[in-house]
Design a protein around this nucleic acid. Structure first.
Length: 418
RNA sequence: GUGAGUGUAGCUCAAUGGCAGAGCACCUGACUGUGGAUCAGGGGGUUGAGGGUUCGAAACCCUCCACUCACCCCA
């Protein structure tokens, strides 16, 4: 067996790469309107950054990281997400000295060691945004609104926005105990996983797919337990979403898997994605910058899975692929040399030009190649054309031919683009 | 990490223990200065790998590998 792409990675071939380009262009265009500017950070970082930023006990840090030791005995990790690296970069380069809100976005590959599945690869791409410097509820709503506009711009209309508040550290501590109380007598009825969750992180039981959450039907929700400032914040977030006329679903069970989230959390779910249906997810992380050694700067952001986004894209309505403007076919040595120059000149006029670099190929095989490439036109150049000073231009669809004076490059270009 | 399903030509798939095939794609010719349609021909395979059962294995058994979906978790 020859070498193939390693498990959980894949090649994006040219036809599909065009779809990726469209997504990235749309993101850059939309995010710019909201004042976000691109930042590019390294693909690997010190392991410590993720351990401290994401949380030691999370699934990502405890079992999903690509961690290795380099020749200088440093422990490094391929980034499993990019919020912590962006915060690290912003601290390192003093981006928080600006009085206004610094807004950044990134596009690039992330790495997590998981079993591959539909919409989930070990190397996957995210496009994400981070807005720093404000804890105002309207910022949360503004960024969520932007994410929906972005998806709509790509023609993804079936997406639903789910919103929740997980409160601050204090709220969660109180709630954790309430959940334990509510389940105290019925731990045995939980599934194996949830019995473990009961001990380690009872909030995760809310996310159980097997149905354990039914035992919590009458238990208080996290929302009911929010303290006054968190409750007020969340009400204003929802109020602003209403003002912006952004439809959303309140999902009290929405719990994020990274430790740094607080207060607002949200996800956008796509249709027709199978089990991995979160197109995009994020929330507020007011303590993170400080945790990583920076000033007390609040933040709000999200990350969007590009692989899943591309899977969700509607079928393009236009032609499925781009085709050359013209194929230049030459017969004979003298014509071949003239053709070489013509190919160069047409390319300098910004046309997509194909030809047959091997001298002396039968005209028939050149015409066949033009057809296979899907060229819109073929330009024939032989002894006859050289002697009388013209080109034979054939329109492939329909097959009509006509003669164009070879001195008139402008006229030829007009014919080819028209 | 757990479970299930699937591995045969470049692609999609047949062949149920008895000669490894079809369609599409590709190449050549019919057609010496012109593509597509048609017709004729051609190249292509360690049947994922290794072992076992059998007179005989693509098929049955074992091990491994890969892919797919799901669990877990997440984008």
């Amino acid at each position: 067996m020859t070498v193939q792409a390693v498990k959980g990675t894949r090649d994006i071939l040219p036809d599909e790469a065009r779809r990726w380009q469209r997504v990235e262009e749309m993101a850059r265009r939309q995010f710019r309107r909201y004042g976000f500017r691109e930042i590019r950070t390294p693909i690997f970082e010190s392991t410590e950054l993720f351990a401290r930023g994401i949380g030691e006990a999370t699934d990502i840090v405890s079992k999903e990281m690509y961690t290795f030791t380099d020749r200088g005995e440093r422990s490094l990790t391929l980034r499993p997400e990019n919020t912590a690296p962006v915060v690290r970069a912003a601290i390192e380069h003093h981006l928080f000295q600006r009085v206004d809100c610094e807004r950044l976005y990134y596009i690039g590959p992330m790495f997590r060691y998981e079993r591959p599945q539909k919409g989930r690869m070990r190397q996957f791409s995210q496009i994400g945004v981070e807005a720093f410097g404000s804890d105002a509820p309207a910022l949360d709503a503004e960024v969520m609104e932007m994410s929906m506009v972005f998806l709509e711009g790509l023609g993804i209309s079936a997406a639903t926005l789910a919103v929740n508040s997980v409160g601050c550290k204090e709220c969660r501590g109180v709630y954790r105990e309430k959940l334990r109380e509510a389940l105290a007598g019925r731990v045995g009825e939980l599934c194996v996983d949830c019995q473990r969750r009961y001990r380690e992180n009872p909030l995760r039981i809310l996310d159980c797919k097997v149905g354990c959450r039914r035992l919590l039907a009458h238990a208080p929700t996290l929302l009911d337990t929010l303290d006054a400032p968190c409750r007020e914040h969340f009400e204003q977030v929802r109020g602003t979403l209403d003002l912006l006329q952004v439809p959303y679903q309140l999902d009290p069970h929405l719990v994020r898997g990274l430790d740094y989230y607080m207060r607002t959390t949200f996800e956008v779910l796509g249709a027709s994605l199978g089990a991995q249906d979160a197109l995009l997810g994020g929330g507020r992380y007011d303590g993170l910058v400080e945790e990583l050694g920076g000033p007390a700067v609040p933040g709000f952001g999200f990350a969007c899975g590009l692989d899943r986004l591309v899977l969700s894209l509607p079928e393009p309505s236009g032609p499925s692929r781009e085709v050359p403007d013209v194929f230049v076919a030459a017969l004979g040595d003298a014509a071949w040399e003239r053709a070489l120059l013509l190919v160069r000149d047409l390319r300098r006029r910004d046309l997509w030009v194909e030809w047959e670099p091997a001298r002396g190929k039968a005209l028939k095989s050149q015409a066949r190649k033009a057809d296979r490439l899907g060229a819109r036109h073929t330009l024939f150049l032989g002894d006859e054309e050289l002697r009388r000073g013209f080109w034979t231009l054939k329109t492939m669809e329909g097959g009509s031919q006509r003669e164009i004076p070879s001195a008139d490059l402008e006229g030829l270009v007009k014919e080819l683009v028209g």
